[in-house]
Amino acid sequence: MLTRVNYAQLLFPDFSLILLGYLVCRYTQLNRPLWEKVEALVYYLLFPVLLFHSIVKSPLDLQVASRLMGAGWALGVAAIGLAYALPHLPGLRRHISGPDHAASAQIAFRFNSFIGLAIAERLAGPQGLQLIAVLIGVCVPLFNVAAVWPMARHAQRSFLSELVRNPLIIATVGGLISNLLGFQMPVWLEPTVTRLGAASLAMGLMAAGAGMQFGALARAKTLAVAVLAIRHVITPAMAWGVSKLFGLDPTQTTILLAFSALPTASSCYVLAARMGYDGAYVAGLVTLSTLLGVVSLPFALGVLRGL
């Protein structure tokens, strides 16, 4: 089992890139107008390539992983339902604005797939990578659709139109279909695609930092606490129950628990900003979620796994 220090070391690169983007934007001539162009590049080209490649490169064995897939979907639907319900809960509705909730609901259920891949490999080797690839393949399309829906609805845009034009959804659905059809990336193209994916991670995290304003979190503290509690406390607890319900074996249970406690996806900021919402607020939530991952991962893998 990984120690707490291992989790901190694993999360440090993401957090340090967010911090670097913040410092560069605030204290150099590489200011906000430049980073708006970087966001567009990441959103429309680099991150879709990364998503497609990450899903395609690990073959999915649907028969072997059917229980894990069901558990992942059940956990995801429950987390999405909780996130959507926040403005309707007694005591919360008057503290949560529609636009802020539409942009930040995704924080509660989306996840950082690359931290997930690294943790899965350390926990269970090649089998862990295979299992986390299954969860990525079946959950990313669901989560991206769920992330877009409240923003499209609140902005009174056509939900179907937003889906078919959303490059992240196109890439994830295309990657899943290609994986199931047995598509393999040509060897000559693999290095280029890998480099584009690596660039999307670094630039996306730095763009999140460049748009970050911690002051924005102060005006919607209730919402911030609620979505982060779902992401880092409630979802891991639900994952423990779901693993028992679906009868997962110990390795599958370990991977599902790790999956449930991951920091949220750094692309939450990019999606919110490109759809016209408060990117600074969402970037602050991404940063806090990255920090909280240092606590939620040991909680899931140390405390819950031992129950």
Rank of each mutant, 00 (worst) to 15 (best):
S243E: 07
M151L: 05
G279Q: 08
D278R: 12
A79I: 08
H232Q: 06
G211R: 06
L285M: 12
Y44W: 14
R122I: 09
Q9F: 13
L23W: 11
Q63M: 11
G182D: 07
L163E: 08
P33C: 07
E36W: 12
V270Q: 08
Q9A: 10
L46Y: 04
P150D: 02
T3Q: 12
R32V: 13
H88R: 15
L228N: 02
G215I: 13
S54W: 06
S296T: 01
A210M: 04
T287N: 03
A218W: 12
G174M: 04
G247M: 09
V193S: 09
W35T: 00
S289I: 03
A8V: 11
I230M: 02
M1S: 12
P263I: 11
Q213I: 11
A237Q: 07
I107R: 00
T192F: 12
S104F: 06
I80W: 04
Q63V: 15
L23Q: 06
Q29A: 15
T251P: 01
A229N: 09
S58W: 12
D61H: 07
L2T: 00
A83Q: 03
G209Q: 04
L288F: 10
L189Q: 10
D100E: 15
G279Y: 08
P33W: 10
A216D: 09
A146D: 03
L82E: 01
L129N: 06
I136Y: 04
Y44C: 11
L262N: 01
Q130W: 13
V145N: 06
Q29F: 13
R26T: 07
R93Y: 11
R93Q: 14
V148E: 00
L160D: 13
A198D: 12
Y43F: 15
V145D: 06
L60A: 14
G125L: 09
D14K: 09
L245E: 08
V148N: 02
F15K: 09
A105Q: 10
G197Y: 02
L10F: 08
L129G: 08
L248D: 02
A71S: 06
D61P: 00
E190H: 15
F47A: 12
W35M: 03
A229V: 08
P263E: 09
T264M: 10
G137S: 10
G276W: 08
A224F: 03
P48T: 10
L131D: 01
C139R: 04
F143K: 07
L160K: 14
A108M: 04
P87W: 01
Y7E: 07
M151N: 06
I230C: 00
S266C: 11
F259H: 07
L176N: 05
S267V: 15
R195I: 13
G215M: 11
G137M: 03
A210Y: 02
L288G: 00
A229W: 05
G72D: 03
M238K: 05
A40Q: 14
H95A: 15
L19W: 05
S16N: 09
Q63G: 14
L217E: 00
L297W: 02
S267N: 14
G276T: 07
A224N: 05
A40I: 12
S296C: 01
A273T: 12
C139F: 08
L60T: 13
H88P: 05
R305M: 09
G306S: 15
L34I: 15
Q252A: 14
V225P: 02
A198C: 05
L17N: 01
R94M: 11
H53Y: 13
S178M: 07
A198P: 00
K244V: 14
V138R: 01
W73R: 11
L10S: 07
R305Y: 13
A71P: 03
